[in-house]
């Protein structure tokens, strides 16, 4: 490429080469380019700066930019790997990669652990689970008696917290998830298998020689 700076690089700060991204992920080069079509549309939905802000992420998830949701916030924070307050294209592809059907259950399990370890202590603590449970109940307008919430937490921790120290470590989480595989269902997006069909316009915007795809 020499000194040539592509239009894409100038318009999209942090835009990484599709071939490099494909080599780091389960995506093919064409799939990375199709994801770029999705990225362009999300990152220009509020401010056309080539980066995804939290507001744009919420808008894409809920079709409503004002909707606050602790889970969406947590996902955003995990996607924002460089902790810049925005998601660049490389972050976007690498984070979505975890949701690819071909990625190992081990990687999905680790990502889910980080997701639920809201305070980043290396443990999923009872108060974090309670906070998430209450947020879910509010979101879905379900009302549960305090005793029921405590009973659900007791049951969950009895099952998951093997050494009964009041918090779930990564080994306990791994064990718990292996006994409850449905918990990782949200970690797989079948859409990612057909991403080139969903965003066929990538073909017209491709910057990569066909040979490389």
């Amino acid at each position: 490429m020499g000194c040539f700076q592509s239009k894409v690089t100038r318009q999209y700060p942090g835009h990484e080469d599709p071939i490099t991204l494909a080599s780091q992920t389960a995506f093919s080069v064409s799939e990375v380019e199709a994801l770029f079509e999705l990225y362009k549309s999300i990152s220009s939905s509020v401010i056309d700066d080539g980066l995804i802000s939290k507001e744009e992420f919420q808008l894409a998830l809920f079709k409503n930019r004002k909707k606050e949701n602790i889970f969406a916030n947590r996902i955003f924070d995990l996607f924002d790997a460089k902790k810049k307050g925005v998601i660049d294209f490389g972050d976007f592809v690498r984070a979505l990669n975890v949701f690819h059907p071909n990625v190992s259950q081990e990687d999905k399990m680790t990502f889910a652990f980080k997701l639920y370890d809201m305070d980043g202590t290396g443990f999923i603590e009872r108060n974090e689970v309670k906070q998430m449970l209450i947020a879910l109940l509010c979101e879905s307008e379900m009302k549960l008696a305090d005793e029921t919430i405590e009973a659900i937490l007791d049951k969950t921790f009895l099952d998951a917290d093997i050494n009964q120290d009041g918090k779930i470590d990564i080994a306990e989480w791994q064990n718990f998830v292996s006994r409850n595989p449905s918990l990782l269902k949200i970690m797989t997006l079948p859409y990612l298998r057909d991403i080139t069909t969903t965003f066929p316009s990538f073909v017209f915007n491709s910057e990569v020689d066909e040979v490389a795809t």
Binding site: F62, I75, K155
Partner: peptide, 26 residues
Amino acid sequence: RVPATMNAFELISTSQGLNLSSLFEK
């Protein structure tokens, strides 16, 4: 109705905020 025997993570994983498939809906 949510039975008290339900696992907390099963409930949490039903959050709309964790369902990234909506990112792909145009």
